[in-house]
Design a protein around this nucleic acid. Structure first.
Length: 364
DNA sequence: TTGTGTTTTATTGCCTCC
DNA sequence: GGAGGCAATAAAACACAA
């Protein structure tokens, strides 16, 4: 190919520009009439449509030629008549080779561009037959037509990419907005938890004769670090510890077969994705003395890149918000949620006063 | 008029297909 | 190996502000 390309390359290309690529200025009406055949793009079937052009050709009669060729011929005639010594537009000998090349680029006329554009709309690839036909009609070299199509395809591709970028950016902005609203929602919920905790702790102290070491109290409800400034930045950081024995409202001990510990911590961003996708080996959320895993951490979702957000189903999203909103009371028990079942079976007698629903860990 | 940024035309080299 | 496509790039043509 390189060899054949070189035919066109460099100054050789200039030598090929024997014909003026510009159209006669009075060609608008002729263009319009020409397009009467093919004004409907759907009727312009690439090289097939060239049949229309063919119909008007095949003879040497200048009136049978396209206006492009007419204009070209007229100009050539003018050149001959005026006996120009050297016209850069028409005489290849005028493309002298000096310095860094001598070829002057000639822009196509608007008519030529319009013609090519409409042809491009029909078919953006150029088969040889069509290329030659277009070149004839436009008074261009076939190579020029090919180059125009090539550049036009490149522009088209660039525009397509810009479109796709715009769509992706819009999608990203939307996800970002959702993310920020979730952050706000999370912040509000944390504040709510804090206020509930503040209500709960003084009440707890007043209820029993517990020492200052609240972890040793029968209920042993310990909410840790909720006010920690460092944790404030984390969407979810809550540890709830319930001792393995507690008492009912009569004061009798209600033994728990398993120590209950619910721990939900923010995970680092790197593990978040795999946690969501792989539900089998994350120890961040445990229930009972079995390590069942719940990875519905808001932080995991929030720290995902927007492009990956579609990995989560709507159901997963619903679970996320449900768990976030109702985690303390665990109102939802899913059949496949083993740890919830275990809670149901073993922790019905936590011993929390039924009326004390302020911070209820009851499954129901 | 001139400097500067953008668009258009054209070249080059590489790649794939037949 | 020839033909054609594409990406990268050069360079002329053009638009426009200062």
């Amino acid at each position: 190919m390189a060899a054949s390309r070189k035919l066109y390359g460099g100054s050789s290309m200039s030598l090929l520009l024997q014909n003026d690529t510009r159209l006669p200025s009075s060609s608008h009406q002729v263009l319009d009439s020409l397009w009467l055949h093919t004004s409907d793009p759907s009727s312009f079937q690439g090289s097939k449509s060239m049949v229309d052009f063919e119909n008007g050709r095949g003879s040497n009669n200048i009136r049978d030629r396209s206006f492009f060729q007419q204009g070209l011929m007229e100009k050539e005639e003018n050149n001959n008549n005026s006996n120009n010594m050297c016209d850069d537009d028409y005489d290849p000998s005028c493309f002298h080779q000096t310095g860094n090349g001598n070829s002057k680029k000639r822009r196509l006329t608007s008519e030529q561009v319009q013609f090519l554009e409409r042809s491009f709309e029909v078919e953006n690839k150029l088969e040889p037959e069509r290329k030659v036909q277009l070149a004839k009609e436009l008074g261009l070299q076939p190579r020029q037509v090919a180059i125009w199509f090539q550049n036009r395809r490149a522009r088209f591709k660039t525009k397509q990419l810009e479109k796709e970028y715009g769509a992706l950016k819009a999608s990203f902005d939307k996800l970002k907005g959702d993310y920020e609203s979730l952050l706000q929602q999370n912040h509000k919920l944390k504040q709510e938890v804090n206020s509930l905790k503040n209500k709960l702790i003084p009440r707890d102290k007043n209820d029993g004769n517990y020492s200052s070491d609240e972890k040793s109290s029968p209920h042993n409800v310990d909410i840790m670090n909720l006010n920690d400034e460092k944790k404030e930045e984390e969407p979810i950081m809550m540890e709830l510890m319930i001792s393995n024995s507690t008492s009912n409202e009569n004061g009798s001990k209600m033994p728990l077969t398993h120590p209950i510990m619910l721990t939900c911590k923010q995970e680092d961003a790197n593990s978040a994705k795999s946690d969501v996708l792989d539900d089998s080996d994350s120890p961040h959320c445990t229930y009972g003395n079995h390590h069942h895993h719940h990875h519905r951490h808001l932080s995991s979702f929030m720290e995902e890149e927007p492009a990956e957000s579609d990995e989560f189903s709507q159901d997963e999203d619903d679970n996320l918000s449900e768990n976030l909103l109702t985690l303390p009371c665990l109102p939802k028990v899913e059949d496949n949620d083993a740890c919830y079942h275990e809670q149901n079976e073993n922790t019905c007698g936590f011993g929390f006063p039924v009326e004390d629903q302020t911070f209820c860990f009851w499954p129901y």
